[in-house]
Design a protein around this nucleic acid. Structure first.
Lengths: 215, 215
DNA sequence: TAGTGAAAGTGATAGCCTCTAACTAGCTCT
DNA sequence: AGAGCTAGTTAGAGGCTATCACTTTCACTA
């Protein structure tokens, strides 16, 4: 076979270097943020000079896309793991906050200001669905009877985003609300909008989650 | 007097050019986003070449700071105007969404991913307080009796951020929740996270506001 | 084992960018 | 009218992304 199948030495080396590049990219991003991510600086840290990096990533955008994909993957794994151990919605919320606080830049890479020309690859929407799926599962367990809102009816007619999940549209609604409320309190905390205010963001977060469950 | 007080011709010219620069900066930002804002390109649009712009803004950061300040000011004015005409909380929410949809980049300039090295000037925290003050006012009008949460008690001990506003800590809590929930649903909509999902973001927004009032 | 072809890495370079420095033209005020 | 300040210029340093032509290094094969 003329085609090198499986893992040739070259292929293995390539994978290793790509991983090393991404590693340094994450480190640089944790300090300087995404917009200041420099391929030049990364190349020097890896030990090669400048343009060599383009053998591994066609462009800055491609590297960023890879980071976004990994960030999504990490969040999905975290949420899934939390669902498997803790199971309940509050546990999910705690896991998500912990994940976000671990590396705020990684959170903003997913949920922050959209990059100008950048378009997320199709794969990320699949992972996004995977996350939503877990959220819906968790909320299906605690669906209590609540008066249906006009939006529930609307969701009934527009639930294709939930795939073929058998949950009621009230549950879908609840999962959506969970998502946006968690994101609201979390992103403002991570962006530092609470810093001058004096209260404890963790307590506020917990209370938001509690309000969410009473809803 | 050797100091040119009031508005000398030079001073008026300077103000006019600064305004023109900011105008072009907003236009460029509406298309390319903040991270790709180029002083060079703006200078050419204004009609002067490159470094002349540094006579008016000491650095790219200073221009951005000015834009952030103006964005805050615009939001505060919008919220205040909405409070004076519509008065109720739902009207405030609608006004904020309308303001955000008018120019999403402007919204993200305030509430989006924090800029790496950038630190907001003190004035923005004052305007931020001004906005919160209006939110608190609006919520004071509809405070219903609700079981106090632990966070209410915590807020009672940490309410210095509300200045000397006479509202109850339950009202403060409500205003905070309003803020984070509006931001949650709004920022996800603006960032395009609902686009593939099919449902109407406006309906979702309205329903979040309604849930907020039932809370 | 020697040779061959692909891949990895290099420096040079173009074209952006921010920002500084030295210099010129023009306005303002005495 | 003259003096001084200011707005504007070009040149350039140093950073960035990205491309190109070139060399080295490796892996597989005849």
């Amino acid at each position: 076979m003329t085609m090198t199948e499986g893992t040739s030495p070259r292929e293995r080396y390539r994978v290793r270097v790509r991983a090393e590049i991404k590693q340094h990219a994450w480190e640089q991003m944790a300090t300087t943020g995404m917009s200041a991510l420099s391929l030049n600086a990364i190349a020097k840290q890896v030990g090669m000079s400048g343009p060599a990096l383009y053998r591994y990533f066609a462009s800055r955008d491609e590297l960023i896309t890879e980071l976004v994909r990994d960030a999504y993957r990490s969040l999905a794994d975290t949420v899934r793991a939390a669902r498997e151990t803790d199971a309940d919605v509050a546990g999910l919320a705690r896991a998500m906050r912990k994940w976000a606080l671990t590396d705020p830049h990684r959170y903003f890479l997913i949920y922050g200001t959209p990059i100008p020309g950048y378009h997320a690859p199709g794969e990320t929407t699949e992972i996004s669905f995977e996350i939503m799926s877990v959220l819906i599962d968790a909320h299906a367990a605690l669906s209590r009877a609540k008066p249906a809102t006009p939006f529930d009816a609307h969701l009934d007619a527009h639930r294709h985003w939930a795939g073929d999940h058998p949950a009621s549209s009230a549950t879908l609604h609840r999962a959506l609300s969970f998502w946006v409320r968690i994101h609201g309190v979390l992103s403002l905390e991570l962006a530092g909008h609470f810093t001058g205010m004096g209260f404890d963001p963790a307590l506020f977060f917990d209370d938001e989650v509690r309000g969410l469950l009473e809803n």
